[in-house]
Write a protein that binds this DNA or RNA. Structure first.
Lengths: 335, 335
DNA sequence: TTGTATGCGTTATCAT
DNA sequence: ATGATAACGCATACAA
């Protein structure tokens, strides 16, 4: 490896016939530099192909200009075709790009991974930390916040940790979904709920319960974990226990997709016999058979908002403890 | 922000009653440290919650212990429910975690983004660079390689840049797919090809052409860009131009999925009237109507192999210029 | 407006 | 086996 020595401030300074300090000023856009000198320096920078050494810079500025996005899911689940995580990544990188910061991605599925994230983030190797989703009451966000490290979480954190978060309005979305089925005459509406150690799972279930309760309808519940597999199993259970059901609200499109198939295999027609509504509005939802009515959540926007909040926090501003994003019922053919 | 001063080597040294050098040795696992001293230092580290400052370390070691994964796609396409990119990310992070390195994710869809990536990577802010997919003949990988920066690309690079790459055996996969249809009696087999500025698109098309040619069958071609939308449009075109087609090989599952729907809308039964085979084996493939026969490519493994190659390269080893991963025909109901 | 001098927290070299 | 001490490349307070 003939790793050509990369030029330093020193080299540029020599070439331009000025001091290191002046070059540094030009590179960092200081206004107090005479035009001819600025030009000379700029030329020297270009000729030498100078690029600042970030390590050196961050050593003195105490900033790293990078932020971590932590995905505490098991690596195998983070990237199923559930589009939640990819969507968040996309939103985060858009906003980070605008701010000229780097995205350090950390999957923390295993305990070892979690520990690694803890070491890395508490070690202040990043200017801030974004959590993409929390399982149970993870103490890490709170720990970081207490250390004075900027943190923003997606989804209201379980337990009462005073960590700022951005979330979508699950309850409003679910309410709209269930109401829609009630309005079209369904009376035996079941739900395939999400995991009850995640806010999204908890809130979507509670939204369902209060809505059916308000309408004087019974609760028909089976728990899944947002995946297709769990959706199939849950649907089969519901069918066995409540053969007369005429509506299903699934807490994720993946589970709804599986429910669609399971219902068909059981000889039920959708939406004629059973109405089905999902949650997420993943791309596949428009291509299921029949196309899926579902609750859209602005997932890319979620990533963007989290990032904006974090950057403000890192800049020393104070921010709202909670930001809520709206959801929307997308009507297709399944309900 | 009461940013508690984080302890430095100096502080640990003072507490343990030794020199900075000794603490550094213990932290870095040097064997030349007496056991009692090592213990004292270890205790001091724990008590103070010391974590090394990576910037300072990398300033002297000339390593950053992080590698960049560049996705040169437009941000909007990188995370469609095409599982390719998420899969690669997953493979890369698994392997990186094992090597205790950080993943810096860079999307480079826009020209500005591309330039940003160039600056960042040529600036040696990472120990190596992985490219997740290339459009056309991107010069950046070659540039980096010439600068002595370790680079590994996914997919054979277009143009003849001598950059090491890992790819899946597109041709073998496509051949198996088309043969499968021929063997079951299809004689008018069309293809919905991928974009012709990407190797995956090019190779899958050429695999199709040679296979039908070998069988003395006609070429029926429409070009898409791997997305569902383009798949629908291409399928409609094929139907209009070749109403008698009895088989379709789509270069991506997303396009195959759209084709399935378009065929149904046109009143064709799959597989009775028309056989359909896709490529990728995304999770959705098992849930389409009918379930999709497709060519599975080991996408997570691709990410892992790329990473392993890169790490070897960064460690000064020399590596194979090309690594080819096998594909496999997964038979379901659509063909 | 520009230059000088200092320090950021490590690792590595060289003594001891 | 351990300790001084010199880099590493940069930003900035201060001096000019």
């Amino acid at each position: 490896m003939t790793t050509a020595q990369r030029p330093t401030l020193e080299a540029v300074a020599a070439r331009a016939g000025v001091s290191r300090a002046t070059v540094s000023r030009v590179v960092n856009g200081s206004t107090t530099v005479a035009e001819p000198i600025r030009e000379a320096v700029t030329r020297a920078v270009a000729e030498l192909g100078y690029v600042p050494n970030l390590a050196a810079r961050s050593l003195v500025t105490q900033r790293t200009d990078s932020i971590a996005l932590v995905m505490p899911e098991a690596a195998t689940r983070v990237f199923s075709d559930d589009q939640v995580f990819p969507g968040i990544i996309r939103g985060v990188s858009q906003e980070l790009e605008a701010a000229d910061k780097q995205l350090v991605l950390m999957l923390a599925g295993s305990p070892a991974g979690h520990h690694r994230v803890e070491r890395y983030t508490t070690g202040r190797h990043v200017d801030g930390v974004l959590f993409a989703s929390l399982h149970g009451a993870d103490p890490l966000p709170g720990t970081l916040a207490r250390l004075g490290i900027p943190v923003v979480v997606s989804g209201r954190p379980l337990g009462d940790v005073p960590v700022p978060y951005v979330d979508v309005d699950h309850v409003a979305g679910v309410t709209a979904a269930v109401r829609h089925m009630i309005d079209s005459g369904r009376r035996r509406i079941a739900t395939i709920a999400g995991p009850q150690d995640m806010v999204a799972g908890i809130e979507r279930l509670s939204g369902y319960r209060s809505t059916v309760a308000d309408a004087g309808l019974p609760e028909l519940i089976a728990i899944g974990d947002f995946t297709r597999e769990s959706g199939s199993a849950a649907m089969r259970r519901l069918l066995a226990e409540h053969p007369d059901l005429d509506g299903v609200f699934a807490a994720s499109d993946l589970m709804a997709h599986a429910a669609l198939r399971t219902l068909r295999e059981a000889g039920r027609r959708v939406p004629d016999d059973v109405a089905v509504v999902g949650f997420d509005d993943i791309e596949t939802a428009a291509y299921t058979e029949p196309p899926l009515t579902t609750v859209r959540q602005p997932i890319v926007e979620l990533g963007r908002r989290m990032t904006r909040q974090l950057l403000r926090l890192a800049a020393g501003e104070s921010i709202e403890q909670a930001v809520m994003l709206p959801t929307e019922l997308i009507r297709r053919a399944s309900a």
